[in-house]
Design a protein around this nucleic acid. Structure first.
Lengths: 337, 337
DNA sequence: CGTTAGCACTCTATCGATGCGAGTGCTAAT
DNA sequence: ATTAGCACTCGCATCGATAGAGTGCTAACG
């Protein structure tokens, strides 16, 4: 199971060469390009061994070798060295955030854009959201006789809204009064808190409470509104998808925005890598997903993911995802403590 | 310039046949499939005439004919009959809206989804927004010593938010006081109204006013947050894009979300069709865009667009876009009068 | 004069044969 | 253990021939 140093080195070269060229890599090309101290025949023997172990494979007899999922797995686990973005790049990114509005949604959107353009692959980022959202403030605005707009500000500085139907015509004054009263009672409460409350509800209050709890419930989950996708165009640029029919499947998954759900839970603070067939969803078996989770004060959390072909530049991708995760955490820490 | 009836009929058949089959259509196939009372030679003569006029073209000598942009233009202008969605479909759609939340953003998103899936093409819908947004209500929430969240509710029942930096630590009480005062002064005002106001601004109020006007300004334009795109996957499914490199250009345009901007102003209440090379943006010359504009009470308006290959099923597409536009107007009318 | 049958011509797409080259695995020598 | 040598495999590009779809033109017809 454990490989000799030479084989490890060889596997590394094969992965990196293939990532760079997109082509299967052969023994002759290798000895030419990299000054290995041995002949191509030796390399062939070693390659045969690596193939035996399942780390590489040939697309067809008499083609070069290509890393298998297992090969990439071994590579990311014990061969690669992350390539952190240069100081220069880091500065540029920081600057971009500086220019953007101080809105969590904007940060998420920007993160997705940066990941996509820097790594030339698709990126999905979920905006920060709390596992236990609490009401900070609540406001009722009359829209129509029987219609009111409920605005809920969460403690995490997120704003939710919902239009609610009232069972009788209600004036703005009346709504304001209801709002004032509920504000006192609901401030700092979670959805389950509210459900547990047993005070007397007036007929006017009932629908508001119901809507408020529904909003809180919805806010717990990564709703599709808060998940930003970017870089599909980059994905189409990748040579392996020029036929297009393979990306299509991916888009089915991505456009329904259930990517985050389909990703195994990322270990917090670390970067999670899912390679090709390791992914539970069938449509994803041609792709790799690199994910990290970021957390902020008061239970805020979210995820950043990059999606690309299995032939990913893992050292750069992992490092960049890690970097952006850290950056998000930093921003959240500074602005929302 | 004006065509004989027979040529008009022929052009119509060519367009519809080509839309259906994706293939160039030849004279023999035509007389076989449609029981025209004449021989293929006659058809050939007529085709030559139509080609002379610029309505059709052959991809290469000895291939069938394909409609040109001008051919499609003639078709949509004077040959096609819109195919309104069946009563059945209309009911289903109505039902879908009934199920959805009564939020304008949700409606827009749903519209995009429906257009995309029913027409099997990409759709872009902008949420309703007012040309002259007016403040309904304003709320300040303390986030941090020097940081506050400004929530602005517009009269159109839209909610905007922005985090603002304060030049000194400010308590929630103080913010509430500022908010109360500004509320009285700003209710019903537009951005230019506010800029025109000359009352005394306290240091605490200045940044809030600035942010509020900025928000109003931003709300006037279709910001990318309020524009919903769906159905890119459908586009990839189209046979003409199986090579993928042509959709890529489109995605460049779409992902930057400047599609609405790149579309010639739609005449209100009517459906606007831009065919292939008619589009000012180069990357779009392989596509057609069908757009309509919807308006609601108090200056609310937005657009719905469908983007597909020039080989669109115009009768269905135009009718469906028209239908959805009318539906949006109806919904806005019912809920926001 | 419009219509049409007939025909030569053009161009594409497809198929099979062929040759080349990259790459492999094996064997025997070092 | 390494390596030179070699036969072998297979994909890929090239080429030519062929079939087929479609056209334009011409001459005949009602």
């Amino acid at each position: 199971m454990t490989l000799t140093d030479r084989r490890r080195k060889l596997l590394q070269i094969i992965v990196e060469e293939h990532v760079q060229t997109t082509q299967p890599v052969g023994s002759n090309a290798l000895v030419d390009k990299y000054k290995l101290g041995v002949s191509s025949a030796t390399i062939r023997n070693e390659m045969a061994a690596l193939e035996e172990e399942g780390y590489i494979a040939q697309p067809h007899t008499s083609a070069g070798r290509v890393p298998t999922d297992a090969g990439y797995r071994y590579y990311v686990q014990s061969l690669m060295r992350e390539e952190a973005p240069t100081e220069d790049v880091q500065q540029t990114i920081r600057h971009q955030f500086h220019q953007a509005a101080r809105e969590m949604d904007q940060w998420a959107r920007l993160s997705a854009a940066i990941l996509a353009s820097r790594l030339r692959n698709a990126a999905v980022v979920t905006a920060p959201h709390s596992a236990q959202p609490r009401i900070r403030l609540l406001e009722l605005v009359s829209v129509h006789d029987y219609l009111a707009l409920l605005v809920v500000v969460l403690q995490e500085a997120r704003v939710l809204q919902q239009t609610i139907t009232l069972d009788r015509a209600t004036s703005q004054d009346e709504l304001t009064a209801v709002g004032r009263k509920l504000n006192e009672q609901l401030a700092g409460k979670t959805a389950s808190d509210i459900r547990g409350m047993t005070f007397e509800k007036t007929p006017a209050e009932a629908p508001v409470l119901e809507a408020a709890t529904a909003l809180l419930d919805a806010a717990e989950n990564i709703t599709l509104e808060q998940s930003f996708m970017d870089g599909v165009r980059e994905l189409l640029r990748q040579p392996e998808f020029h036929e297009g029919d393979r990306v299509q499947n991916l888009l089915e998954v991505l456009e329904e925005r259930n990517l985050p759900r389909s990703i195994p839970d990322a270990v917090e603070g670390d970067v999670n890598i899912v390679i090709g067939g390791e992914h539970p969803v069938d449509e994803m078996r041609n792709f790799s997903v690199v994910t990290t989770r970021y957390t902020g004060p008061s239970g805020l959390r979210g995820t950043l993911s990059v999606v690309g072909p299995t032939r990913l530049h893992y050292p750069r991708t992992v490092a960049m995802v890690r970097h952006m995760g850290a950056l998000m955490e930093e921003l959240l820490g500074v602005y929302f403590t």
